[in-house]
Structures are given as C-alpha cells and as structure tokens.
Amino acid sequence: MTESRNPGISSISQTAQAHPESCSPAVEMDPVEYTLRKRLPRKLPKRRNDVYVNMKTDFRAQLARCQKLLEGGGHREICVHGLGLAINRAINIALQLQASSQGVLQLAANTSTVELVDDLEPEDPDEAAEPMTRTRNNSAIHIKVFYPDPQ
C-alpha cells in the first residue's frame, strides 16, 4: 500500500517509528510518504449482453452466465470484457464457449487501453504536501462471441 520515493529510507523509518519517543528526528528527516488509493476504472453503460469478467467470482459461474445468455437468453452475440489480470480469464471463457458449442460460435477480439486513476495521499506530519493524482494505462480485451449469420 505504502509507496515511498526512497524505499531504503522509508523502511528505516518504519522500524524506527516503533520507538516514537526515542528517535523523533529520524521521522522528521523522512521524505514524504504517500498512500496509494486506486480509483475504480471508468464505468460505461452496460447492455444486457455485456459480461465484465473479474477475478473474484468463480470461473465456472462466469462461464455459466455467458452460456445462459447465449442459449437461454436469446442473444445472438455477447461481449466479454476483461481488464488487466482478467484478460486471461476473459480469453479463457471465450474459448471455452467456442469449444462447448462445437465450433458454431465465432470470436472477434479487440484490445484497448484503459486509463486508470490513482490517488496519492501524503502521509507527512506537516501536512503541507499536496495530494497527487496520477494516471496509468492498463490493457483491456473485448471479445465478441457470436453466432455467424447463415448467409
């Protein structure tokens, strides 16, 4: 969680803070520490046939959900989205869907880059430091799983 500009010094400070009364100067010399807080990725309106894959839910449950949409739900196509770590899983789900349909389903994959926002909150005792925000990019995949048209 804690990120520091200078990891070496900060780790000293962490051990040192256990004796707060004995070595206060060491704390003061410490560079500004920041706490990293990740904000949620940008949310877009969701259709019924959009499936956002995450790493928390059980894989089988997510697969079953997609199958249900395709078979029982009456959708000709669904979109499986995965961000970051979940890209693997999104691909996996799409391939599983295709395999279980005996090749009827077709896939069309797109990749994109999502801009994520992190908040950096200063942890300094003087509270003079400005909080910062930074952006970083993460990859995402959007796989369209669909029944091809008969033509």
């Binding site: 807080r37 904000r39 949620l40 990725p41 940008r42 949310k43 877009l44 309106p45 908040d119 925000t133």
Partner: peptide, 9 residues
C-alpha cells in the same frame, strides 16, 4: 460520469 466511485474522494 457514471459511477460515484470514479470521483476524487
């Protein structure tokens, strides 16, 4: 903005 979690806290 579509969700409350995307804003600066």
């Amino acid at each position: 903005i579509l969700s409350a979690g995307e804003l600066p806290p």
